[in-house]
């Protein structure tokens, strides 16, 4: 992605996080009980005030009720709490697309959504595509067309392709390319990934 820059520091290198780890002591923020309009605000939601809440959401058709920390991203909860590790975390800042999932029909970066915002949402991850042993046409197409090289970006590519096909069952090549444009592939296997999405469209 930086090949045109030639010399000097690249934007990406430069921006690499400088030791800003995301693990910190569980500091408990002050409650909202004394907040203005507290009476207008439901007490259950105000009570805990510890940066934690119970969230009800659907993942791959299954209903979950789980306690999440407000600072947890959807990607972290999918992987660490629900064990759905098909969703990858690459950059963790909305740039690479490895974490792409489908939320209420639209593809989004799960690293850039808080899990606490997912209350009432329907989430589809790569694990939710196959019906039993039968792969989704887009999964089969990625296999048939050598979509993965190292495979790290693949589940994200597949979810962006799937989101496209849900809205547009017969996309043009240009549309498929654009739909995958938020998914970087470090192996540079873009042509195969686009080919796979187009093949999946035909297979349906």
């Amino acid at each position: 992605m930086d090949d045109k820059k030639g010399k000097g520091v690249s934007r990406r290198d430069f921006l690499k996080r400088v030791g800003a780890g995301s693990v910190g002591a569980a500091v408990i923020s002050k409650g909202l009980l004394d907040a203005p309009g507290a009476d207008a605000y439901p007490t259950e939601a105000v009570e805990p005030a510890k940066g934690r809440s119970i969230v009800s959401l659907k993942v791959n058709g299954k209903a979950y009720r789980i306690e999440v920390q407000h600072r947890q991203t959807l990607a972290e909860v999918l992987r660490d709490e629900l064990g759905l590790t098909g969703t990858r975390i690459g950059c963790d800042r909305g740039e690479c697309g490895a974490c792409t999932v489908i939320i209420d029909g639209r593809n989004m970066y799960s690293c850039s959504q808080l899990a606490v915002w997912m209350s009432g949402k329907e989430i589809l991850t790569v694990e939710g595509l196959a019906k039993g042993d039968k792969l989704d046409p887009i999964q089969q197409a990625f296999i048939d067309h050598d979509g993965p090289q190292c495979g790290f970006c693949t589940s994200g590519q597949i979810m962006s392709g799937k989101a496209l096909l849900l809205r547009n069952p017969s996309p043009s090549e240009a549309q498929a390319r654009r739909a995958l444009s938020g998914n970087l592939c470090r192996c540079g296997n873009y042509n195969r990934e686009v080919e796979a999405v187009l093949a999946a469209a035909k297979a349906r």
Binding site: S29, G51, Q69, V116
Partner: peptide, 14 residues
Amino acid sequence: MKTFENVDVKSVKE
């Protein structure tokens, strides 16, 4: 991320 509290609001006024 540092710990923080997310507050869902129901109106602009709130």
